[in-house]
C-alpha cells in the first residue's frame, strides 16, 4: 500500500528512541526490552534521573562499559555487558518479576509486531511453527508495568499497518499498551482508540491515518 502514499521522511531508529526518551519523566523506574528499546536509555536528558531495571535481577543499570571496564558478572537481560550505577541493587529472578508483575515499575518499553486499538500487543511470535517460539519476560512486563510503551516501525516492510483494529499475530498481552512510538508518530491508546499525540517533522495527520489500520483520533 505504501507505493500509493505520499512519500514522507521518517525517524531513524535512534530518533525513535530519542523521541520516546524525551517523554520519560524524572524519577521513573523503567524496563527496556531487548533490541530497539534498549537504545532509549542513551537519550534520557542528563538532568533527569530515570532508573532502569533489567529482569535478570538488576535495578539501577548503567551504561555500556568501555571494553577495559567490563565486569563479566554484570549483564543485562539482552546478555550484553552493562554497568551498575551507584545505588544499584541486585535481586533474584523471582523478586525481579515480583517487582514487574506487582506494578512497581512505572514503565516498560517493548518492541512490537502489532498493536491493536484496544491496546493488545503482539510481539513474541509470528505464528511460524517451524521455529521454536521464545517469549522471555515480554508477557510479564506487558501485564505488570504501569505504562507499556511500544517502540516499532509504523508499517511492515511490505507497507502493511502495524497499528491495527485487531492483532493477527499471537498476542503477548491484552489491553495493556498505553502508547506507541513509531518512526512517524506518537499514538496514545485511549478508550476511543488510537489518538495521535505527535508526528515526525513534516508528517501530517492524514499521512499517519493512511498508514494506520484503524481510525485515528485527534
Amino acid at each position: 500500500m505504501s507505493a500509493t502514499l505520499n512519500p514522507i521522511k521518517t525517524y531513524t531508529r535512534e530518533q525513535m528512541a530519542a523521541r520516546a526518551a524525551m517523554d520519560i519523566p524524572d524519577g521513573w523506574f523503567a524496563n527496556l526490552g531487548i533490541g530497539l528499546p534498549t537504545l532509549v536509555s542513551d537519550y534520557v536528558p542528563a538532568e533527569r534521573e530515570v532508573i532502569f531495571q533489567s529482569e535478570n535481577g538488576i535495578l539501577g543499570v548503567g551504561p555500556k562499559p568501555a571494553p577495559a571496564d567490563v565486569n563479566p558478572w554484570v549483564i543485562n537481560a539482552g546478555k550484553a555487558y552493562v554497568t551498575l550505577l551507584p545505588g544499584a541493587s541486585i535481586m533474584n529472578s523471582a523478586e525481579s518479576f515480583a517487582m514487574i508483575r506487582g506494578g512497581h515499575l512505572d514503565l516498560a518499553v517493548l518492541g512490537g509486531y502489532e498493536v491493536s486499538q484496544t491496546g493488545d500487543l503482539a510481539n513474541w511470535s509470528t505464528g511460524d511453527n517451524e521455529q521454536a517460539p521464545a517469549v522471555g519476560g515480554a508477557m510479564d512486563l506487558g501485564a505488570g508495568a504501569k505504562q507499556v510503551w511500544v517502540l516499532m516501525e509504523h508499517v511492515t516492510k511490505s507497507g502493511q499497518p502495524r497499528l491495527v483494529d485487531t492483532c493477527s499475530y499471537p498476542l503477548t498481552t491484552i489491553g495493556s499498551v498505553t502508547r506507541v512510538y513509531t518512526n512517524i508518530a506518537v499514538v496514545e491508546i485511549t478508550p476511543r482508540g488510537f489518538l495521535l499525540l505527535d508526528t515526525a517533522p513534516g508528517v501530517s495527520f492524514e499521512d499517519v491515518q493512511a498508514r494506520t489500520g484503524a481510525k485515528l483520533h485527534r
Partner: peptide
Amino acid sequence: ELTPQGTLVE
C-alpha cells in the same frame, strides 16, 4: 514447554 519468564520463576 514455553513459559513466560516471570511465571517460570514464580
